[in-house]
Amino acid sequence: MAEPLAAATTAQHGQPDIVSKRDFLKLVTISGAAIGAGAFAWPFIASMNPSRDVLALSSVEVDLTPVQAGQGITVVWRGKPIFVRHRTEAEIKEAVDTPLQAMIEPVPDADRVKPGHAQWIVVIGICTHLGCVPLGNKPTDPRGDYGGWFCPCHGSQYDTAGRVRHGPAPLNLFLPPYAFESDTKIRIG
């Protein structure tokens, strides 16, 4: 709405020098106001990002000593279940020997574990289909045809490396960022 008015005043007064100086000033002022509004809006947007206390809890340490071969534990990281499973020799061998062609998202077993710690598989326990938590971490749970995890919601099945072997899930279980602090201790996040 500023435009017709500004144009009208220009026409009436016919003082282009003053007008162009004013227009430049106006442009600078409007730009300044826009920058100011943007700077004022940023804290509001940023306040919705995770706060310092939430970020501070984003790493957990897990002691692996009590986990026997063949068993798994579930820990919570960023509000999500993390499956930590101690694989048996037979399970490792099967996971390594499975041909890549048999998989929906082909990834060798070596890329799913940390070097030298092949007995430990650590995955985010959320089905890549629609976000349910698969069964199979407890020895009494159904583990599906591939010995890993079985999602009760829509029947997806994962092997002991957390790779999807039967749909409808499209992707392997995600790996959280983690590192071995010692042979019996990992730090997730």
């Binding site: 940023w42 804290p43 509001f44 940023a46 306040s47 919705m48 990002n49 706060s51 310092r52 206390d53 939430v54």
Partner: peptide, 30 residues
């Protein structure tokens, strides 16, 4: 935006305001 982080409960209200001041991004400014 403050209400997004405030807890209207006598046990939590004071601390939730201090959490806004200390932990929420730009919470002190808001």
């Amino acid at each position: 935006f403050l209400a997004m982080n405030y807890s209207p409960n006598t046990g939590l209200a004071f601390d939730s305001v201090q959490r806004i001041m200390r932990d929420v991004n730009y919470g002190w400014l808001l």
